[in-house]
């Protein structure tokens, strides 16, 4: 049965119509036009659809809409701040990924960015091993892994500089 849910996405309340177990990815992409959350497998195996719910990485491909109501949802469009802006690359993580040219086809990047954000929010100066652990649930088929790891290290350095200056 279709119901109305109020979701807080990138700091903004959005009303959506869905059945209780509709995966969030379809709501984000098809009802709200937030296409940055990418569909990869629908099986919680590739990480392409990773979003943050209350700051923790979550798979949008299987996460039911009713379990996300009232929680803080963040997607790649809201990486930089409040609101959803699919054109922005202002966040230090995005800047670092550009500086390292970290990506080829780019399909994995939205999810990788969200996991990296969750990591840096909790651990501003992670070791390389901690970065690898945080990203290990993400698949990259193009072989951009080493650049992605370097980009997260670069973003961590930039963020800590921001903090101290």
């Amino acid at each position: 049965m279709t119901q109305t849910y109020t979701l807080v996405i990138n700091g903004e309340a959005r009303q959506v119509q869905a059945t209780a177990d509709t995966p969030l990815i379809y709501i984000l992409r098809n009802q709200l036009g937030l296409k940055g959350t990418r569909y990869g497998c629908g099986l919680e195996q590739c990480g392409c659809c990773t979003i943050l719910i209350d700051g923790e990485p979550a798979y949008a491909c299987t996460r039911a809409v009713d379990s996300a109501e009232g929680r803080e949802i963040r997607t790649v469009e809201g990486l930089s701040g409040v609101g959803s802006d699919a054109g922005s690359v202002d966040h230090p993580l995005q800047q670092a990924f550009l500086a390292e040219q970290a990506g080829q086809c780019g399909y994995c990047l939205s999810g990788v960015l969200m996991s990296a954000k969750a990591l840096l929010d909790q651990n501003p100066s992670p070791s390389r091993a901690e970065i690898v652990t945080a990203l290990d649930g993400h698949l990259c088929r193009c072989g951009s892994h080493t650049r992605i790891i370097r980009a997260v290290e670069r973003a961590a350095a930039a963020l800590s500089q921001e903090q101290t200056s």
Binding site: V76, A86, L98
Partner: peptide, 8 residues
Amino acid sequence: LPAKLSGA
């Protein structure tokens, strides 16, 4: 790459 990183 910028558009891909921005979620566009």
